[in-house]
Each structure stands twice: as structure tokens, then as C-alpha cells.
Design a protein around this nucleic acid. Structure first.
Lengths: 345, 345
DNA sequence: GTGAAAGCGCTAACAC
DNA sequence: GTGTTAGCGCTTTCAC
């Protein structure tokens, strides 16, 4: 075979994924790509005839739109990032679940990141998130690092901080006051006649603030200073048993314990019962979170109920509204909490 | 001011996100965009001088690469999708957590989807996932719907099915046999001298298979047919209490209960104790999952331990290896389980 | 080691 | 209602 001396420039082949593209669908349907695009995204803008042909082509080819390409072109990724300290902390599960569902209903997909309570990897995580140009970012807790705040502010992505309250959120906020929680529980136990209080707390920042407010309120009420034991997070019933043992060592006559999580409280109750200390006869115990299991225990566990699902739904609404250009009138929402009295107190 | 009569064609303004782009960084560093790209992705391929200048430009501008654009161009999104029935089912949490972490270590981000136990939205979810062109998809359980299997097969994305075993996975698999679990527990309780067995089970498909195998094995061992009560998922201690009440109604003399989750088991134990039925003296109880809290209960809960973290890690390795062109030799991994005997049996 | 050109697959902007 | 054109921001391919 003789090649012709003058070659045309070799065609650069740059096959993509090899998948069906909108282009293929449009060709099959006999319309322009943009028309096919409109048929899929805003069906009411095209004629019934086009709709039918495009629908047929999609069905025949099994076309799935490339949302990466769509996101790049429209600068709307329809992705929302959520950051939780760790997914193993069950208090946040309701939030994440309702967030996922509420977002899915409005056409958004959730991207999940775990920051770890330490916040060490927070920077890398932030980079990975911002790099995906999500339409919104939902944070658990408020962002304290000024570097983090600056980056979030700079990238211009809507941000919802949750599970806490601050007068100076980065953008939007839905949460409640941890100080109020601590005070409310101390007041409650005081009102129930408990006079030797104690606190078993995970050592994360928000739990520490609840603990500090709990202690301060007890002092305010004329009580002696409650003993506080901190355990590593994530909290667990095992940690609760250990914490209770330690508390009894340091303050043998205690009659009321506020725990920073329902799991911790389960362990505290278990350890107390194992030692013959009656709950609530000799000891009142309160948890925090209001997880479902708390009410099924024996004795049923008193707790501070947080409506995690509402937090998730509200956050989803914030993000979706903002993305769709709907004015968000109130940027800070305090969803509150409730001290739920059950048998354990 | 007078405009010149002949206007140049109006420039189509199509400002993107307005964010700093690689182009900006390159200009600032005085190199071509592709050189800046290389400096960031494969630093060893460029000179030290270029590296320094680009690094400086990135620092000055706060540039964050647009991974959507990168993914589109390279057909590698560095996204991995995970599908769980519901995030509220704590058995899967360890898996999701370790999956997230193991993927993050290798530069991948997790996208989370909830299918619901019903599988109703599975189709829409699949579309949302495939549309993002993830580098891998991790499913909880095996995909049964033939439509789903076909779509996953067709899109060519690596798939890992988990928490189950089948000889015909779509692609890769890491799990264990639910039938073996059911049989093992029946054998175990029989060996402990229990003769009137029962089962409290969530009504999801895998739990049902454990239940069926449990019943079959009990019959095989010459026992009378164990009573089985099914409760709606997600399971909870409350459901466990209700299930126990129902079991006692239908089989008052039972002496061993296998529960399809540790939470259910907690409820079963609670209800038994509330009725004065000693555990384990009169009743042996086993859970399933091996959640951490099980060992801190009083009595400590016997359970079937599943190494969820190992499942997550292995799945992450499967996906990342495949994405990086590393040959995956063994596509099916049985990680097994362990019957852990504690006080409750 | 560095760069120019050509897309990845889609949609915004503008015409008709 | 439909089509044309020109990107979105990056990486691949090829050339030096």
C-alpha cells in the first residue's frame, strides 16, 4: 500500500466516556442538541412532536444526562455538601436523613464529608467540597476557624450552619442555644429537688458549653459546684458507665446527672443500676438529643429533645430557596429544644 | 458622548461563576494554563521555578480547582456514590464511616443516597447517581431489580455490592451469608440447651432470609417451629418491646429469641425484664450487628458481630484500585461474621 | 520541561 | 418554538 506523500493532519481522537450524549439523542430525534436539552429540562417549552421524538430517542438509547457537564455549563451543580463531625454520632442522623430527603425532593443530591471532631482535616475537606462547586454547604456547628470562614465567604456558596446559635453566622443558620440547654436542665433538676448535681459530658465544644452553662446555673441557684467528667467522643454507653464510676468516686452522694448524649445516659443508668442505685429514686438522669430509643428504656429516659429532622428540612429549604433565587428573609432560625420528663427523673 | 456608528458585534457575556480559574493563576505565574495544571497535579513534571511561581499565584488568589470541569475533561470525577436503605439504620454507619475515610485517603469524595427499604425511589436515585459519572458505586445489599442491574451494567461504572452474598454480583462484592447467620444462631441456641426458640425480625429482605434460615435450622435440629414476629423497619427498642409482647402472647414458654438487630434486642430484653423474666436465666437473647453499645448493657448483649468497618474499607479499596487501573483479582469477598457470646445468652 | 490546539458534554445568549 | 454559536474550566493530544 502506498501512502500519499502529503498527509492530512491526523485527526486527534479524544473519545470521552464513550457513553451516549445529548448529541446522539438529538441526532436520533432529528433535532438540534439544544432542543433535546429543552425537551428534557423544560418540556413545556417544546412542541408535543419534539417531546415525543426525544422521549423515544432517550428510551431507545438509555441516555443519562451528564450532570458534570450540565453543572459546568450552567454553574449549578445541583449538589449540596454536608459536613458532620462523624456520621457515627447518632444525634445528627435525623438531620442528615431529612436533609437528604428534602434535597432529593427538590432535585439536589447530598455529598457527605466527615470533619472529625478534631477539625484537623477540615481544610482538605473544605477544598474537596468547594472544588465541586456545590449549590450549598451545610455545616454541623458553626465554623470557628477564621481561615475556614474566610474561604467559605470568598467562594460565594450559600452556607447553612446548624446545631448551634451565633449572632454572626457566615450566611444562614438553624440551631439552638447550648447555653440555654445547660441552664434549663440545671433549673429543671433544681426544681425537682435535686441538690448534688453532676455532669457527664463528651469533650466536644458544644457539649462543653452546655456543661459550663449547667454548672454556672447550678451555682446561681445556690448549689455546690457540680462535678463534671469529660469522656472522649464519640460518646457511647460504655463511656457512660465509666463516667458514672468516676463521678461516684469523686462525688459519692450525687443525686442528679446531666449527660451530654442519650447514649452516655444509657450507660450512666446502667452503671447506677448495676450498683444498686435506684433511678430515679436516688438518682435523676437526663440525656441529650432525644433519640427514639430513650423512650423505650426502663426506666424511660428523660432527655433534652432536639428536632434534628426539622433542622435538616430547614437547612434544605434555605439552600434550595437560595439556589432558585427565592429571597431568604430570615437567615437565623432558633428551633429551640424541649426538656422531656420521663421516668428517669 | 457619541457612539461610533459602526459597532463591533456585541460581546456575548457569559460570565461563569466569577471565581478564580486556572487561567488566572497561569497568567499571574507567567506560564501556560496547562503548565499550571501540571504544577498542581504532577509537581515532579515541572521545574522548581515553575512550581514556586504557580504555588505563589495559588496562594495569592486562593484558587480552588473546579473539579466539575476537571472531571468532565478527564472522565474521572473522583466521586463515589454510596446507597444505603436509610442512614438511620445504625448497622451501616460503621461501613459508611470507614468507606468515607478510606476514600478520602485516596482522594475520593462520597456522595450519599438513601433508597429506602421499599426501593421505590431506587430508579430516580440511580439516575441521579449515574448522571454524576462517579468513579464507583457502592450498594448496600445486592441489586435485585433486573432494570437496575441492566442500567448499572450498561453505564460501565465499577459497582460494589455489600452486606450480602450472591454468586452473581453485578461486578464486585463484599459481604457475608445471611443464611449462615440464621443457621449459626439456631445451632448456637440449641447447643445452649434452648428448646423453644423465637425470632423478632425487621421486615427487610435480608433479615427475612436470616429468619427463614434460623427457623429451618431449628426444625432440622428437631425443635418445634420457632414463632416469628416481623416489625416495620427501621427497627428500634420500642419495636423490640412490642415484638416481645407479641411473642409472649403467641408462645408463652419461649426460652430463646434471636433479634434481627441489636436495637430490637435491647427492647426485647427491656420488655422481658419489665415482666420479671430473667435474662439469661429464663430467656436467652441475641442481637445482630455487633454495635458498640451492646457490650455495655446489663446484661451485656450477645450478638452476631459484623465487621462493618472492614466492609467499608474493602469496598473503598475495590473502587479506588479499579479507578487507578489496578487489577482486582478477587471480586467476591466473604468477610464472615461471629456469634459473640455475652451475658444475655 | 513547556506550550498550542482541540475538545469533554452540556447550556446561556442571541437570532429567526 | 427552534437553531446557531460560543463558551463553562479543565485536561488530553500532539509538537517542540
Amino acid at each position: 500500500m502506498s501512502a500519499s506523500p502529503i498527509q492530512p493532519p491526523a485527526r486527534r481522537t479524544r473519545r470521552g466516556s464513550g457513553a451516549i450524549t445529548l448529541h446522539d439523542v438529538a441526532k436520533l430525534a432529528g433535532v438540534a442538541p439544544i432542543t433535546a436539552s429543552r425537551a428534557l429540562r423544560s418540556p413545556h417549552q417544546v412542541s408535543a412532536e419534539v417531546l415525543r421524538k426525544v422521549g423515544e430517542a432517550v428510551a431507545r438509547t438509555g441516555y443519562v444526562p451528564n450532570l458534570l457537564a450540565g453543572g459546568l455549563a450552567s454553574t449549578r451543580s445541583r449538589l449540596v455538601a454536608a459536613v458532620v463531625p462523624t456520621i457515627s454520632a447518632p444525634v445528627f442522623l435525623d438531620s442528615v436523613q431529612s436533609l437528604t430527603e428534602a434535597l432529593a425532593d427538590r432535585g439536589y443530591q447530598l455529598m457527605l464529608g466527615q470533619s472529625g471532631y478534631t477539625g484537623g482535616r477540615e481544610d482538605a475537606l473544605l477544598e474537596a467540597i468547594i472544588g465541586r462547586r456545590p449549590d450549598g454547604i451545610v455545616l454541623t456547628g458553626v465554623m470557628h476557624s477564621s481561615e475556614g470562614r474566610r474561604r467559605l465567604l470568598a467562594c460565594g456558596i450559600p452556607v447553612v450552619e446548624t446545631w448551634d446559635l451565633t449572632p454572626t453566622p457566615i450566611d444562614m443558620l438553624v440551631g439552638f442555644s447550648h447555653e440555654e440547654v445547660g441552664r434549663a436542665v440545671a433549673s429543671y433538676l433544681h426544681a425537682k429537688g435535686r441538690r448534688r448535681l453532676a455532669m457527664a459530658s463528651g469533650d466536644d465544644p458544644r457539649a462543653r458549653r452546655r456543661a459550663a452553662a449547667f454548672v454556672a446555673r447550678a451555682l446561681e441557684l445556690g448549689q455546690s459546684k457540680p462535678t463534671t467528667v469529660f469522656v472522649p467522643t464519640p460518646t457511647s454507653p460504655q463511656r457512660g458507665r465509666e463516667a458514672m464510676a468516676e463521678l461516684l468516686r469523686r462525688q459519692p452522694g450525687l443525686d442528679g446527672v446531666f449527660c451530654s448524649s442519650d447514649w452516655l445516659a444509657l450507660g450512666v443508668v446502667t452503671e447506677a443500676q448495676a450498683r444498686g442505685i435506684g433511678v430515679p429514686s436516688r438518682l435523676a438522669v437526663l440525656g441529650f438529643g432525644g433519640l427514639e430509643f430513650a423512650s423505650a428504656l426502663e426506666p424511660a429516659l428523660s432527655t433534652v429533645q432536639i428536632n434534628g429532622a426539622a433542622i435538616g428540612r430547614r437547612a434544605a429549604q434555605f439552600i434550595a430557596d437560595r439556589a432558585e433565587g427565592i429571597e431568604v428573609e430570615q437567615r437565623i432560625v432558633d428551633i429551640g429544644f424541649a426538656v422531656v420528663e420521663r421516668q428517669s427523673s
